[in-house]
Simulated assay, not measured.
Amino acid sequence: MAPRRCPCGTGLAYAECCGRLHDGTATAATAEQLMRSRYSAFALGDAGYLLDTWHPATRPPSLELDPTVRWTGLDVLAVADGGLLAAEGTVEFRASYRHEGRTGSQHEVSRFARVDGAWRYLDAV
């Protein structure tokens, strides 16, 4: 059986892509990589990873994911900063989903910042 493809859309196997970030064997090197891993966490229902990668200044006390939403695709539209040596960055994306028989998409520009060297989701602008 072929390895499961990563939901984030890189074309890589999940274990070689976001799976390494989700299980803690790797950390995101860029803001885009963190954003992709967070999308995959939404797609797989991993609220713990989402909370762990949320900036402490904006992190909610808990997170309830809607199990009836099925995330179906991710398109990264633009990336500004957020590279290997950057302290902040933004990623614009469109995430597609199905909910109660309807398709939709979420378009967002997410801001990311490093906390103790690790990328964290700050907020959406």
Rank of each mutant, 00 (worst) to 15 (best):
E100S: 08
R4F: 15
E92L: 05
M35R: 07
A124W: 15
Y121N: 06
E32Y: 02
S96T: 03
L34S: 08
G24W: 01
H22Y: 04
V69S: 11
A118Y: 11
D52I: 06
T53C: 09
D75L: 11
R36G: 04
L34Y: 03
A13D: 13
L51E: 07
M1G: 14
V91C: 03
A26V: 08
A26L: 12
T25W: 03
C18W: 11
G89L: 06
F112M: 00
T27H: 02
V109L: 00
V109P: 00
S37Y: 13
L122Y: 15
D123A: 15
R111S: 15
R94L: 03
A28D: 09
G89R: 02
L50K: 05
T10G: 00
R114Y: 01
R4A: 15
T90P: 00
C8L: 11
Y49I: 11
S62F: 10
H99P: 00
D23T: 06
L85Y: 04
A13W: 12
R98G: 04
D116F: 05
D52S: 14
T30M: 00
G83L: 00
A41P: 08
A47E: 03
V91Q: 10
T103H: 04
A80P: 03
C17D: 11
E16Y: 14
Q33Y: 04
R59S: 13
D52T: 12
G73M: 07
Y14P: 04
T10A: 04
G104F: 09
L12N: 13
E64W: 02
V91P: 00
A26R: 10
S37L: 08
T72V: 04
R5L: 15
P3N: 13
T25K: 04
